[in-house]
């Protein structure tokens, strides 16, 4: 084994292994969204999530569904289809289903508050 072979075996192979492991470690995290950490600023637009309406036809039941929906909750029709139930824009968007409701009193309010 001459010098060139020795370098190739004892430096080249370990280096190749290290490079492969480094690529495997760093590559999957390259396009991962930043995870929320307590204390960091939250500069996303507000989102308001609503439940699906109880009367929505379930997929596969009844003849109302005209297209194969991507959701198990079935398709919505007419003007209702435009209003999203799962994700509606917050105040900044103004187009969400939630914001359409007028404010009305709900009697004495209860609940709880927490900080972390």
């Amino acid at each position: 084994m001459n010098t060139a072979e020795a370098i190739l075996v004892f430096a080249g192979i370990p280096l190749a292994i290290v490079v492969v492991l480094a690529l495997l470690t760093l590559k999957p995290g390259a396009n991962r969204r930043p995870r929320y950490k307590p204390g960091q600023a939250w500069d996303h637009a507000p989102i308001w999530f609503e439940p699906h309406p109880a009367h929505a036809p379930a997929a596969g039941h009844g003849g109302e569904t005209q297209a194969i929906g991507s959701s198990v909750y079935g398709e919505r029709h007419g003007g209702d289809a435009a209003a999203t139930h799962a994700v509606s824009g917050g105040q900044s968007h103004g187009g969400g289903a939630s914001t359409a409701h007028a404010a009305q009193p709900a009697g004495p309010l209860g609940g709880a508050r927490g900080t972390w």
Partner: peptide, 11 residues
């Protein structure tokens, strides 16, 4: 951002 959670229940 404010580290606050509020639960509000109607009557």
């Amino acid at each position: 951002g404010q580290r606050v959670v509020e639960v509000v229940t109607g009557a």
